[in-house]
Design a protein around this nucleic acid. Structure first.
Lengths: 142, 142
DNA sequence: ATACTTGCAAAAGATTTGCCGCATG
DNA sequence: CATGCGGCAAATCTTTTGCAAGTAT
């Protein structure tokens, strides 16, 4: 059973066949396809269709939404006009996007997290969510 | 003449009547006191229509795109499914979005900027661009 | 039975584009 | 004249929704 399936049970989200498939596809997007794989809905649907070719894209949308609301996965809106998804990780992480290769490097930085909280507080807000994206080019080593 | 008009001249972008109107509308959207509105296309169109009621939304889209490509304005893709715009500023700033009202608070934080540079460097990248968005809810004061 | 889920197709919302007349150099 | 620009409507693209049938509790 995938981690996502476990989380569904925890959160009381009913697991249908379709949801299991979508859960699996998202779970696998980490190990199978590498860390730079943040599939969009169309891609998720394609991969799910390999397991059950009758699965509807509407179901993918509905399930994704459900999973997101349950904190099971995270949606990213990179500059492309469509959303991309990844399983929620225990530790919050941010993304550095290689502007040349498009490769995505994930990183965790406690200092940034704290700083963000501090800033929000200073502005009179309770921090609910945050997005940090760095865009950079690889430094060549000799 | 608005700053945006000046920039158009610099960049060799031809200024038609419609473009002047849209330039003015964007220029006028500048921050006045704490809350700045980062209008979306529909809002830009509404405001432009007050000046010339025949202006087409297609023209707004085309002009916005042109301005963006010329570095005259900046597009933001907050989590709303539509883009919002602001004039390009000299100093880099970040945004805190009120998740309840949609209000946007701008802020500059040197510490964050430095930290981001440090992180990129540690990962072996030269920082080229970055985006930090905080989402929060207002803390009620007594 | 009652409430939730799905597939399909239609709808909705944001943005882009084809066409053609009009303006500008 | 030649090129670019703007208005309109149609087309696209992503995402949501109404409906009727199916499934689980």
């Amino acid at each position: 059973m995938s981690k996502i399936e476990e989380k569904c049970k925890e959160k009381g989200v009913r697991l249908t066949d379709q949801r299991k498939i979508i859960a699996k596809v998202i779970s696998d997007s980490k190990q199978t396809f590498g860390s730079k794989d943040h599939p969009d809905v169309d891609e998720l649907h394609k991969r799910a269709s390999l397991i059950d070719k009758k699965i509807s894209i509407a179901t993918v949308y509905r399930t994704i939404k459900l999973f997101e609301e349950s904190g099971i996965l995270i949606r990213h809106d990179f500059k492309e006009g469509k959303s991309r998804y990844e399983p929620t990780t225990e530790e919050h992480h941010n993304h550095l996007i290689d502007i040349n290769s498009g490769e995505i490097v994930e990183f965790v930085d406690k200092e940034v997290e704290e700083l963000q909280n501090k800033i929000a507080q200073k502005l009179g807000y309770k921090l609910v969510d945050h997005k940090l994206e760095l865009y950079g080019s690889k430094i060549k080593k000799n």
